[in-house]
């Protein structure tokens, strides 16, 4: 319980900053609405206002700023507007029994979650396998490690369309496959780096001890390197699953997909509905939070079973 207070404090600070930012972000729109409703606005003309700095506008029309907090299509929606939209597209629809309707964020989050899981699984397997290879083979360390690092310097948005084109060229119909591949592409790296560090964490003395038992390579892997790497693995997995989610959402942007949180963001952008974008973003953030928390629990349980307490 102690851990909640700092989290809530940071959350409150973010919300306060957000609410404060709504006024300047929506000032011009607010004044347009005020003008239409016959209120006195200075300068009176929309075109002149466009060339006046926002802060000047706010100072001269301080009586009309409040309108920025109740716009229908705000440039920056308020937290409560996002909250309402989020509820309307999740909880409310679930109560009506339409949780998996195509308008529901639950449906879209589910689509995204599936690809995230596949990407996460693939990325984790590739990351662990790569790490084992790197730790045990000097050749692999020299050949694979630089490429693993280079792979992360390529912007994923540049690579994603190529992966999609490639997979359709290969005759893969399923939309989820390229998404999972993109997701795995982002996810494998933290797992690889963490596992290399974890598998190398045993000291020279610990390795020598196993040599005095004439332990086989397999035995020293299973009994020493692998258990020693677990704390590192869990830390990596937490980063990895967040990266997998981001990868999936990025993968949904250029696919022309119509479902998934990424698709919602894109559609919201094209149809000029910022609320849809923001609620999809909020849903993605909540999803990431839940996934990381679940892994945190798995970590706590596993490490406690392994004699944790330190």
């Amino acid at each position: 319980m102690r851990g909640f207070l700092p989290v809530l404090a940071v959350l409150a600070a973010i919300l306060a900053l957000w609410v404060a930012a709504v006024a300047p972000m929506n000032a011009r729109q607010a004044l347009d609405v005020a003008e239409r409703e016959g209120a006195a606005v200075t300068p009176a003309e929309s075109r002149t206002r466009f060339e006046t700095p926002v802060l000047t506008l706010m100072l001269r029309n301080s009586g009309e700023i409040w309108r920025g907090y109740g716009l229908e299509r705000p440039r920056l929606p308020t937290p409560w507007q996002v909250g309402q939209e989020l509820w309307a597209t999740t909880g409310e629809m679930a109560l009506e029994g339409r949780a998996f309707s195509k308008r529901s964020l639950i449906y879209h989050a589910w689509i995204t979650l599936q690809s995230t899981f596949w990407g996460f699984a693939l990325g984790t397997v590739v990351g662990i396998a790569g790490a084992i290879g790197i730790v045990y083979s000097r050749t692999m360390e020299l050949s694979v490690m630089p490429w693993a690092i280079i792979s992360q310097t390529i912007p994923i948005v540049a690579l994603a369309p190529m992966i999609i084109v490639l997979s359709s060229q290969l005759g893969i119909e399923e939309r989820g496959v390229p998404k999972a591949v993109i997701s795995a592409y982002l996810c494998f790296f933290p797992v690889l780096v963490g596992m290399v560090k974890g598998l190398r964490s045993p000291t020279a003395e610990q390795l020598d001890l196993l040599r005095t038992y004439s332990a086989s390579g397999m035995a020293s892997f299973l009994k020493l390197r692998l258990p020693a790497s677990l704390p590192y693995l869990f830390t990596s997995l937490k980063i990895g699953i967040a990266a997998a989610l981001v990868g999936t959402i990025v993968g949904e942007l250029p696919t022309g997909a119509i479902s998934g949180l990424g698709a919602r963001i894109l559609i919201g952008d094209q149809f000029g509905t910022p609320l849809a974008i923001w609620s999809a973003l909020a849903a993605a953030a909540i999803l990431a939070g839940v996934l990381v928390t679940l892994l945190g629990w798995a970590q706590a349980v596993t490490l406690r079973r392994m004699g944790g307490g330190r």
Binding site: T203, E205, Q206, D208, L209, T212, S214, L224, P227, A228, L230, M306, G307, R310
Partner: peptide, 18 residues
Amino acid sequence: RRARAYGYVFQAAGLYPW
């Protein structure tokens, strides 16, 4: 070593924490 002729004790106890 293969005949298990000796046991070795290092300066650090080196017990596995898990």
